[in-house]
Amino acid sequence: MIQRCSFDWLNRPCLNTHATLMLEAGASLKDVQERLGHSSIQMTGDIYAHVTPVMQEKSSQAFSDYLEERS
Rank of each mutant, 00 (worst) to 15 (best):
A25V: 06
L29G: 00
Q61C: 05
E57W: 01
A49R: 11
Q42I: 13
D46R: 15
K58H: 14
Y48L: 06
H38Q: 09
D31H: 06
A49L: 15
T44G: 00
T52G: 02
A62W: 10
S39A: 10
R35H: 15
A27N: 10
K58N: 15
D46H: 13
H50D: 11
L29S: 02
L36H: 07
I47V: 14
I41Y: 04
H38E: 09
S28H: 08
E34S: 02
I47E: 11
I41G: 02
Q56D: 11
A62I: 09
E57R: 00
T44E: 10
A49N: 04
H50A: 02
M43R: 12
E57F: 01
S40L: 01
S28Q: 08
A27C: 12
G45D: 01
K58T: 15
I47N: 04
A27R: 13
Q61D: 15
E24Y: 09
A27G: 00
E57P: 03
D31A: 04
H38C: 03
E24K: 06
M22R: 11
D31P: 00
S59G: 05
H50T: 13
H50R: 12
K30N: 11
V51W: 11
G37L: 06
S39W: 13
I47W: 14
E34Q: 08
Q61I: 14
M55C: 04
P53F: 07
R35C: 14
D46S: 10
P53E: 09
P53R: 03
D46K: 14
M55S: 03
D31S: 01
V54P: 00
V51S: 01
V54M: 04
E34W: 05
I47K: 14
Q61K: 00
R35N: 15
H50Y: 12
T44F: 05
I41K: 06
E24W: 11
I41Q: 09
Y48F: 13
L23W: 14
G37M: 07
A49S: 03
T52R: 02
Q61R: 00
T44Q: 05
R35K: 12
E57I: 02
G37Q: 03
H50W: 13
Q61M: 09
A27E: 13
S40W: 03
K58G: 04
G37S: 01
Q61T: 12
E57Q: 04
S40A: 03
S59K: 07
G45W: 11
R35Q: 15
H38F: 08
G37H: 07
M22T: 03
S40C: 04
M55P: 01
A27M: 14
H38L: 06
G26L: 08
A62L: 10
P53G: 08
V51D: 07
Q61V: 11
T52L: 04
L36C: 04
S28A: 07
I47L: 13
S28V: 11
V51L: 07
L36G: 02
S59T: 15
Q56T: 12
